[in-house]
Design a protein around this nucleic acid. Sequence first.
DNA 1: TTTTCAGTTCATTTTGAATTGAAATCCCTG
DNA 2: CAGGGATTTCAATTCAAAATGAACTGAAAA
Lengths: 161, 161
Amino acid sequence: MVAFFIEAAEMLGVPKSVAAIYGVCFASPEPLSFADIESRLDISKGSISQGLRVLREVGALRLSEKLPSAVNGAPLSGVDPKRRDYYEPDLHLRNLVTRWLEQRLAKQLAAGKDRLRSIAKSVPAGSNGSAKVLRGRVKTLQAWHDQARSVLPLVKTFLKL
Amino acid sequence: MVAFFIEAAEMLGVPKSVAAIYGVCFASPEPLSFADIESRLDISKGSISQGLRVLREVGALRLSEKLPSAVNGAPLSGVDPKRRDYYEPDLHLRNLVTRWLEQRLAKQLAAGKDRLRSIAKSVPAGSNGSAKVLRGRVKTLQAWHDQARSVLPLVKTFLKL
DNA sequence: TTTTCAGTTCATTTTGAATTGAAATCCCTG
DNA sequence: CAGGGATTTCAATTCAAAATGAACTGAAAA
């Protein structure tokens, strides 16, 4: 399961450790504590702390209010559970993906739009061959860019159904 | 223009140098030689050579058969053009994007499918709370995965119009 | 044939993001 | 409020991907 998330994350440019943390939490029926994660993942405390922060910020994990019940009779080691935070996945992958699209794609597309505008302005106006070619190129870029922007909401809509 | 491509590339996980090379070629009305690229980009020969190879392999650039005509009266420096290769952008951006989707996304999604299947098999069958939760999680994952797979062709279609 | 130039290769270096680990901080509890 | 464990912080380290550049290849020119 962890591997599954790591692979997916790699493709989206999310650090492995973050993916792994989300992975173990997602794969656990009971909320996990910091220590639980540490013991399952062979990752430094520092990374875990940071990873948890990111995941909380993004809304991928949330603090579970109810303490994990001692499932299967296992009495939850000897530690006082009240002193730890327990994390569980916030189960709307949908929202995660949407948010990701929003952040990485939408932002970049917006920036690109401005840049393209200024590029367009700087293209020579002449009617000789070169100028024509260049204007054509810019047009191509703009067309592609517009398409990308119009696909975005489409995808978002689709993922919501 | 180069910056535009570099930004886009960063998001897709393409090396900067490669994006830059494509950028200058895309931005030039005349095909460019190795030396032209070198002079415009402050990038080492090695990187240029490798970048050109990648871009050729991917079909993003092609060798131009016609030598660049001495445009604007500029007599094309003093060098013998016959000894150089000249590159011009080839694939429509559309196709580039499609190909990228095909390679990175489609491949990963296919792999994920198998992995998910084997995950599903390994989930305990019991009817206690934990088992139920776990089965639910796997279901969620599968649903999400299916959605992703169904969005892909949609996007491809859309980008073709 | 020798020379010269265009381009390639690949071992090495650089770079920057991810990770670590140890010190600092927080906060519960006696 | 002191002690101590849980978490955070952040400077230093690691590590993989990317870039470099010197040595090499091969083809054309002299």
